[in-house]
Design a binder for these strands. Sequence first.
RNA 1: UCCCCGUUAGCUCAAUUGGCAGAGCAGGUGGCUGUUAACCACAAGGUUGUAGGUUCGAGUCCUACACGGGGAGCCA
Length: 427
Amino acid sequence: MYIEEAKNFVGQEVEIKGWLYNSRSSGKVQFLLVRDGTGIMQCVISQNDVGERLFKDAEKVTQESSLIVKGIVKQDERAPGGFELVIKDLTVVQIASDYPISPKEHGVGFLMENRHLWLRSRRQWAILRIRSTIENSLREFFNERGFILIDAPILTPAAAEGTTTLFETDYFGVPAYLSQSGQLYMEAACMAFGKVYCFGPTFRAEKSKTRRHLTEFWMLEPEIAYITFEENLQLQEEMISFVVKKVLANCKEELKIIGRDTKPLEKVDPPFPRIHYRDALEILRQKGKELKWGDDFGGDEETLISNEFDKPVFVHHFPEGMKAFYMKPDPLEPQTVLAADLLAPEGYGEIIGGSQRIDDYNLLLQRIKKNNLNLENYKWYLDLRKYGSVPHGGFGIGLERTLAWIAKLPHVRETIPFPRLLEKIYP
RNA sequence: UCCCCGUUAGCUCAAUUGGCAGAGCAGGUGGCUGUUAACCACAAGGUUGUAGGUUCGAGUCCUACACGGGGAGCCA
């Protein structure tokens, strides 16, 4: 039996295979908190039931030792979770000695050094289960809408955007780079399959040392042929709302463990507010932040704007030249591009960046040259504008930042099993 | 790359003006028949990040370096 199914086994004899999370004893009774990956269950062992020998064995089981217990499932208000196991038999698989993570407080540095063990603790268990739910619901959302999953390459010959933030590696004697984005490849794929998305790791060698940055993070990038800018925003707000609803429905226990107030999440429903870049500047001016046309927002600015709303908010129509080279100028106001960032509430900042892509061959060629990109590398990308070019667009959603917001975590490093941070790659 | 803070027992932290390095947890031993990060008792645990300097005397003051944390820029 798995612990999460305990309520279906009341009165029955079952076997739990797991690890000792913690134990307490009181003379001739011991309480073993056993975890099996699906949950934690209090198991009671009394000397009168099992005899002195087995009782003594149980006393020797240390924190995180692996063990198998057999007994009867009982409903009991005194047990955390409402169910406990009355132990009849216990087998030790392996005794763990000197487990470094005690039930008391630890610092982040120590916990990160022991990330491989930290994953076993309750809070990390809850967070990573929410991560799994988010990933699954994202896939479900796109699969239900007829999107085709296209895996983008991780080794690439050139940069999608800037060249300073790339991890370089040797590819049989020529330089190759770890992917920064699958987007350009998705543009090719959407011309073949109509609606596509990729979901995988991306790499940024930025020397960023903040609560919002990882050097390796996961991004989901849809790309849709013939989509309009407005349809793109609708897709994003429907996707976010779908994911939040799935987490609220499927992760009640996990949200409780991490102490997440779910009220702000319950408000997440389309439509999301839309703020023109020009009006975002005005909001900031009223808050005492004077920015010039063309200035980008930092973390503080994003927080000021998102705090004006109790839902995620789109900021759109950024000045041309401020964003990536492939973004399409709005024909109605050509000094801006048809791009939008989605800012999460509660100060979590940008979780989505999306845009219409340039579909005109000559304009794209001009932009590539203007950005000093090597034309050789973009020949195939230009081909897409040569052979049946169509209006198209898409976006990229950062998984870790989305999870940090939904779980209201102070730092993204807890949102990924093994975070890769500035100059840190162990374990 | 820049700014700020920190580094004392395995872990989390104390240590007054520069004057005998100390708790809790973990680990050890013993006790307790319903515990909830259980509790009680006892014992053990230290080259105070490294290198130099000031001083009768440095965990404490100064300099450099290393490592860690937070933030800026940049970005999802």
